[in-house]
Measured scan of single mutants.
Amino acid sequence: NLRWTSEAKTKLKNIPFFARSQAKARIEQLARQAEQDIVTPELVEQARLEFG
């Protein structure tokens, strides 16, 4: 299971509600691909840039 830093959680809250669950799934996918067990603000930002 993935842990989220408080900064990453804050960044996730800045994503519009309607896109948040999809973004969260993508962020967690990116973390797993990078073999990380902690979601960082950088991963959230990477996903945000993908979504535009």
Rank of each mutant, 00 (worst) to 15 (best):
3 R>T: 12
22 Q>E: 10
22 Q>P: 03
49 L>K: 11
50 E>K: 07
39 V>L: 01
7 E>I: 04
27 I>S: 10
14 N>Y: 10
38 I>M: 09
41 P>W: 09
46 Q>W: 07
35 E>P: 05
25 A>N: 10
43 L>E: 01
15 I>H: 03
24 K>V: 13
52 G>Y: 13
23 A>T: 07
17 F>V: 15
46 Q>G: 03
33 Q>N: 11
27 I>Q: 00
32 R>K: 08
29 Q>D: 08
8 A>Q: 01
23 A>L: 15
17 F>G: 15
8 A>H: 00
2 L>V: 08
21 S>P: 10
41 P>V: 15
9 K>M: 14
51 F>M: 13
25 A>H: 09
47 A>I: 14
20 R>G: 03
39 V>K: 00
26 R>T: 05
33 Q>E: 13
8 A>P: 00
4 W>D: 01
25 A>D: 07
19 A>K: 12
16 P>K: 04
21 S>T: 11
27 I>N: 00
43 L>S: 02
34 A>I: 11
39 V>Y: 00
34 A>W: 12
24 K>S: 04
36 Q>I: 14
14 N>W: 07
26 R>H: 11
45 E>F: 04
4 W>F: 01
41 P>R: 06
17 F>D: 14
15 I>C: 05
12 L>H: 01
42 E>W: 05
23 A>C: 09
17 F>E: 15
52 G>A: 14
29 Q>K: 08
16 P>A: 04
47 A>G: 06
50 E>W: 07
42 E>T: 04
37 D>R: 10
15 I>P: 06
46 Q>E: 07
42 E>Y: 05
44 V>L: 03
12 L>M: 08
15 I>N: 02
11 K>Y: 09
48 R>T: 13
37 D>E: 11
9 K>S: 09
28 E>I: 08
42 E>F: 05
19 A>P: 06
43 L>W: 04
22 Q>H: 10
39 V>S: 00
25 A>W: 07
28 E>R: 03
6 S>V: 12
5 T>D: 05
24 K>M: 11
30 L>P: 00
28 E>H: 03
3 R>K: 12
30 L>C: 04
18 F>G: 07
23 A>K: 02
5 T>I: 03
34 A>T: 11
27 I>H: 00
20 R>Q: 09
51 F>E: 04
23 A>M: 14
51 F>W: 13
5 T>Q: 04
48 R>Q: 12
47 A>L: 08
47 A>W: 15
40 T>D: 02
40 T>Q: 03
22 Q>R: 14
20 R>S: 03
3 R>V: 13
34 A>R: 12
14 N>D: 15
10 T>E: 15
33 Q>S: 08
6 S>Y: 10
27 I>D: 00
11 K>N: 07
47 A>Y: 15
46 Q>F: 09
1 N>L: 10
41 P>C: 08
7 E>N: 05
29 Q>A: 11
3 R>G: 06
32 R>P: 01
48 R>G: 08
43 L>C: 05
40 T>N: 04
28 E>N: 03
52 G>E: 15
4 W>Y: 02
12 L>R: 01
16 P>Q: 03
32 R>F: 06
50 E>Q: 10
11 K>G: 07
46 Q>T: 07
1 N>M: 10
11 K>R: 12
11 K>W: 09
43 L>A: 02
30 L>K: 04
28 E>F: 02
9 K>P: 00
21 S>G: 12
23 A>S: 03
15 I>V: 05
18 F>W: 15
32 R>D: 03
21 S>W: 09
26 R>S: 04
8 A>L: 01
25 A>R: 12
46 Q>R: 09
52 G>P: 12
42 E>K: 06
45 E>L: 06
49 L>E: 09
6 S>N: 12
7 E>T: 06
40 T>W: 04
27 I>T: 06
46 Q>K: 11
24 K>D: 01
51 F>V: 07
38 I>Q: 06
13 K>R: 12
2 L>E: 01
14 N>L: 14
43 L>G: 01
37 D>Q: 11
42 E>M: 06
4 W>G: 00
47 A>Q: 03
21 S>D: 12
36 Q>P: 01
17 F>P: 15
12 L>Q: 01
7 E>G: 10
16 P>Y: 05
25 A>I: 12
20 R>Y: 03
23 A>Q: 04
39 V>D: 00
17 F>C: 15
25 A>Q: 12
7 E>S: 08
26 R>I: 11
34 A>G: 07
29 Q>M: 11
4 W>L: 00
25 A>C: 10
37 D>A: 10
48 R>C: 12
8 A>T: 01
51 F>P: 04
34 A>M: 14
45 E>N: 06
35 E>G: 15
47 A>H: 07
19 A>C: 15
28 E>L: 04
29 Q>N: 07
33 Q>T: 07
51 F>S: 06
15 I>T: 02
42 E>R: 05
2 L>Y: 03
48 R>V: 14
1 N>S: 12
33 Q>R: 10
8 A>R: 00
31 A>Q: 01
24 K>I: 15
16 P>W: 05
15 I>R: 01
26 R>P: 00
31 A>L: 03
31 A>D: 00
20 R>E: 03
18 F>K: 09
10 T>D: 15
45 E>I: 06
51 F>Q: 06
13 K>I: 06
9 K>Y: 11
38 I>S: 05
6 S>W: 09
38 I>E: 08
25 A>T: 09
2 L>C: 03
17 F>S: 15
18 F>Y: 14
1 N>D: 13
18 F>I: 07
8 A>S: 04
37 D>V: 11
11 K>L: 15
2 L>I: 11
22 Q>M: 11
5 T>R: 02
2 L>N: 02
49 L>D: 06
13 K>T: 07
19 A>S: 11
13 K>L: 14
29 Q>H: 08
12 L>N: 01
13 K>W: 09
1 N>Y: 10
19 A>R: 11
9 K>D: 07
34 A>H: 11
18 F>V: 06
20 R>H: 05
33 Q>H: 09
27 I>R: 00
38 I>C: 08
44 V>Y: 02
47 A>N: 02
13 K>H: 13
16 P>F: 06
24 K>Y: 06
48 R>N: 07
31 A>I: 02
1 N>H: 11
20 R>M: 05
45 E>G: 03
11 K>F: 10
28 E>D: 03
32 R>S: 05
11 K>M: 15
27 I>G: 02
9 K>C: 15
47 A>V: 15
33 Q>F: 08
27 I>Y: 01
31 A>M: 03
45 E>Q: 06
44 V>N: 00
41 P>T: 09
16 P>D: 06
46 Q>H: 07
20 R>V: 04
23 A>V: 15
23 A>P: 01
42 E>G: 06
16 P>S: 04
3 R>Q: 12
46 Q>S: 07
19 A>N: 11
26 R>Y: 14
39 V>A: 01
2 L>S: 02
35 E>Y: 11
19 A>V: 13
40 T>Y: 05
33 Q>A: 11
37 D>M: 11
26 R>A: 07
8 A>N: 00
37 D>F: 13
46 Q>Y: 09
34 A>P: 01
49 L>V: 10
3 R>C: 10
21 S>E: 15
15 I>G: 02
31 A>C: 09
50 E>R: 07
52 G>H: 14
10 T>N: 12
9 K>E: 13
31 A>S: 03
52 G>W: 13
12 L>T: 02
29 Q>T: 08
3 R>A: 09
19 A>Y: 14
40 T>G: 06
11 K>V: 10
1 N>P: 14
24 K>Q: 07
15 I>E: 02
